[in-house]
Write a protein that binds this DNA or RNA. Sequence first.
DNA 1: ATCCAAGTGAGAATGATTCTCACGTAAGCC
DNA 2: GGCTTACGTGAGAATCATTCTCACTTGGAT
Lengths: 146, 146
Amino acid sequence: MRVDQETDAIERLAYAGGRLTRARRLIARTAAQLHGAFTIDTLAERVRVTDAASGANATVYRAVAAMERAGFLTRVGERGGHALFARCSTRGHHHHIVCETCGRVAHADCPLTQAIEASNAQGFRITRHEVTMYGLCPECAARTGS
Amino acid sequence: MRVDQETDAIERLAYAGGRLTRARRLIARTAAQLHGAFTIDTLAERVRVTDAASGANATVYRAVAAMERAGFLTRVGERGGHALFARCSTRGHHHHIVCETCGRVAHADCPLTQAIEASNAQGFRITRHEVTMYGLCPECAARTGS
DNA sequence: ATCCAAGTGAGAATGATTCTCACGTAAGCC
DNA sequence: GGCTTACGTGAGAATCATTCTCACTTGGAT
């Protein structure tokens, strides 16, 4: 089977040196097609539509973990108890805005520089922080009415 | 059994009109004694130390949910897959800084006003956000060395 | 072409949280 | 002080996302 060069590049990128198996190729391709944030079970369902044999939950979970390690996917929040992932290879520290309706994802600069300084002033040493904003993307906001 | 007035007031406050049962009294009293953030199973263990019959997990989960509804406790983050709660009746929108070592909790003003405005400028309508900072409180930072 | 470590898949296990259901008991009412 | 009943309790089962196990398969280096 000949593989389209761009697709092949995406698949290789997704696993950063890991093995490219039939399942992993399909999972990466499917993840790249999904626009915005998705849950792992949504991804697994889509994979199974194309190839029922390659969508075992455990395999998709492992592939997503590998793609996260490779910096191809990022955990961008959660919805209804399911972790949300999105393709994000943007470098540098930043945060995500997730549309609650359609899952579209936008980037936001880190607003905490000052907050961390203020905390340091209180004697705290901040080592880690989490910021996620949820809302409506421009399209969904327009659809919902002003 | 006579009940200390302040303790009684705390217990009543914790459930905001809900029933005051033996188990609920003990759970509220125990939660009030824990300094900083705690997980529900830690709270349940402490409760069982005082009264083995009043510390059923389900009961503690329900009591915590009730105290959260009443605004007596707040979910302030998570640690190792367990939700972290802390006593917090501070009014007004704010966020929490949780010491990763001892669980001490401090408050932080919301640093997102500007970020939300920036997002609105992108056309997003932010409806909800989560901010948690983790780190070391002054004491734990000192103990760990500079 | 061969080899073997990495990957796969089916299903079991894990583990926090929630639910069920029979029983107990606060608290309003007399 | 008793009566009533809706709310709370407790033991254990259920739920459900995620991870693990283990025998089998396969990519890809040599």
